[in-house]
Amino acid sequence: MSSSKRITKEYGELENDPIPGVTIKPIDQDMYNWDIEMSGPAGTPYANGTFKVRLTLPTEYPFKPPTIAFKTKIYHPNVSNDDKGNMCLGMLRTDDWKPSCKLRTVLTLAMKLLNEPDTNDAVETSIVEQMKSNHDAYVQRAKEWTKTYAV
């Protein structure tokens, strides 16, 4: 039993009925690594930016959770500010992941986080502090980064 059938099906569904703002590059040889582009939602400091995201499925997928990483630098409390750019999503934690969870849900949640960062579950606590103490400075910084790295 391999996971290829499931992955192909999930990819097909996302291709036929895409999530707004999420573009998935065709998967040909390597179906365990998806290259994705996410558009920064309007009305957020990430607007007009295009963020390259790598979705990695473990060989045990869907019994183990996928990981999601930003290849484009982004100033966001839920994305680690290092060379990995890992996005911290509650449902991707080993304990919370269920094999019935779908990649559509994962990507929708990731998009939702771009729209409104989750300050209660952040990897970059310094950004959260800035959002609380000086929101304008956060917005300005995030806009600058978007302009520098994602446009």
Binding site: M1, E60, F63, K64, T94, D95, K98, P99, S100, T105
Partner: peptide, 22 residues
């Protein structure tokens, strides 16, 4: 395979839930 993953690689036993989300 779900049970094997939970038991063998995650070390769960008395608290394994149904594979369905939620």
């Amino acid at each position: 395979q779900y049970l094997e993953n939970k038991i063998m690689s995650e070390g769960e036993s008395g608290r394994i839930q149904c594979p369905t989300d939620g």
